[in-house]
Design a protein around this nucleic acid. Structure first.
Length: 485
DNA sequence: AGCACA
């Protein structure tokens, strides 16, 4: 009775030009592997830090004979293979080539992604992190956040060399003993898992309890961070208050009919100037971000539209919440996004959607402080490249008040998915203030809302049909209107 | 000290 034989140990393993190395020191760098193996032949690929303990590796030789040479050499050698004095066990791999030799986190860069295991976000302050990592060089920026993986921090160094020295020294280690006294007593172990981020320059908008930009001491302090809030904002009545924002997140339920940027613009313009719109898909559901100039307008729109349907019959029901974003960075004119603050885009939009006043080109932000420009390739050079304020449609990310201190690709920001340029990327960009509201200012528009719009069945007086009907959408014979359920 | 990915 022949079974498919269980794999035996090395004696019956078929040779492969890929070798499996075990019992490596966990610090083992690719260079050390190469050092060990290159006397036997040309190494074409490696994979380091494999296994739960990250103490295994694979090395692929150019030629099978080279791998055989190495295995047989150490099989008969009196001196075992060693890395830093540690005996390394070598055998043929059961695969014949190394695929995916590097995970994204292993590609060196100047920004580290640090996961601090076994702690809550409040346990390890950004100052402790700064202290620990400053041992390896000047830390430019830090952004911390909580994800499923735990408490994480992005730490930006000047270059990949500095970053890798920090990673090599700290990956897998606990926070060094000399700073442990800075941690709360209940924090027992807090191991650091460190990989490289694909980011090259973090976009820090405020000095706050969760983000720092050490290159720019003049960066404004996030007002909400002064009190060091670690708990949700609380309203006057003591109840938990949802964090407000000038940007609304709209989920569109029961979307039987296409909802275009123009439709959304029409709907949301009833409450004030819509600055930017971005439509995207999330979990198979269509969502949209709608940016107003201020929180008040957004609050009014939210109150009025929540639970209402764009089309009669329960179609395209809106669910609104506040986004964490305060300023969207969207393509000026595409089928999924619109930036009405850009004069050209407004013109373009006006060609298609007649009847809407173009947003005024107000680019000066009175709130703007001298700012550090945090785009992908920023640095001294890009700061100089900034044009003077008030000139044309620049992308100067003027500072604006807001509570989002660190904004990036939604939901994927610190994770392992990096969209460099695909899709809308939300980050800092200018928020031109003082755009003239379509109807009324924020304060009066709230009275407007209280007069009727928020009442089910009381549609706002603005209908897409009036010069802005979305092409061929909506139920037959029905122009978009608002119906309470 | 015993085989990787997502």
């Amino acid at each position: 009775m022949s079974t498919s034989g269980t794999p035996q140990f090395r004696y019956t393993q078929t040779p492969s030009k890929v070798l499996h190395l075990r019992n490596l020191p966990w610090e083992c760098a690719e260079e050390e592997l190469i050092e060990l193996c290159k006397p036997f032949g040309k190494i074409v690929n490696t994979k380091c830090n494999v296994g739960a303990n990250r103490n295994q590796a694979f090395v692929e030789f150019a030629d099978l004979n080279q791998a055989i040479n190495m295995v047989s050499y150490y099989a008969s050698s009196s001196e075992p293979a060693q890395v830093r004095g540690k005996t390394v066990y070598i055998q043929y791999s059961n695969r014949h080539e190394i695929v995916n030799n590097k995970s994204p986190g292993d590609v060196p860069g100047n920004v580290l992604l640090v996961t601090i295991e076994g702690v809550e976000a409040g346990d390890v302050s950004i100052d402790v992190i700064h202290l620990v990592f400053s041992a390896f060089g000047f830390v430019h920026k830090i952004a911390t956040f909580e994800k499923a993986a735990g408490f994480q921090a992005l730490i930006q160094f000047n270059d990949a060399e500095t970053a890798s020295s920090a990673r090599n020294a700290l990956d897998g280690r606990s926070i060094p003993r000399h700073v442990l006294y800075l941690l709360p007593e209940h924090v027992g172990s807090c191991h650091l898992r460190i990989s490289y981020s694909a980011h090259t320059d973090l976009n820090i908008k405020f000095q706050s309890h969760r983000s720092r930009d050490y290159t720019n001491p003049y960066l404004p302090v996030n007002p909400t961070a002064i009190e060091g809030i670690m708990q949700p904002a609380v309203g006057p009545d003591g109840k938990k208050k949802e964090l407000e924002s000038n940007v609304l997140l709209a989920s569109i339920e029961n979307m039987q009919y296409a909802v275009t940027v123009d439709v959304l613009h029409t709907v949301f313009s009833a409450f004030g100037t819509v600055q930017k719109i971005a439509i995207f898909e999330k979990n198979g559901q269509t969502q949209a971000l709608v940016q107003y100039p201020d929180v008040n307008t957004a609050a009014v729109a939210r109150e009025a539209l929540e639970g209402h349907c764009i089309y009669d019959g329960g179609y395209c029901k809106l669910h609104l919440s506040y986004s964490r974003h305060t300023d969207l960075n969207v393509k000026a004119f595409s089928d999924k996004s619109r930036d009405y603050t850009i004069p050209e885009a407004s013109l373009l939009a006006a060609q298609q959607v007649s009847g809407y006043p173009a947003a005024p080109a107000a680019w000066q932000n009175p709130q703007a402080a001298p700012m550090y420009h945090g785009n992908e390739f920023s640095g001294a050079a890009s700061m100089q490249a900034q044009g003077p304020p008030g000139q044309g449609p620049s992308w100067d990310p003027a500072m604006q008040a807001g509570r989002s201190t660190f904004v990036s690709v939604p939901s994927t920001f610190p994770g392992q998915t990096f969209h460099a340029s695909s899709g809308p990327v939300y980050s800092s960009a200018a928020m031109p203030p003082g755009s003239s509201p379509l109807q009324t200012g924020p304060t009066t528009s709230s009275s407007m809302a209280s007069r009727g719009i928020s009442q089910p069945g009381g549609p706002p007086n603005l209908r897409p049909g009036g010069g802005a009907s979305p092409p061929g959408v909506g139920p037959p014979g029905a122009s978009p209107s608002y119906y309470g359920q």
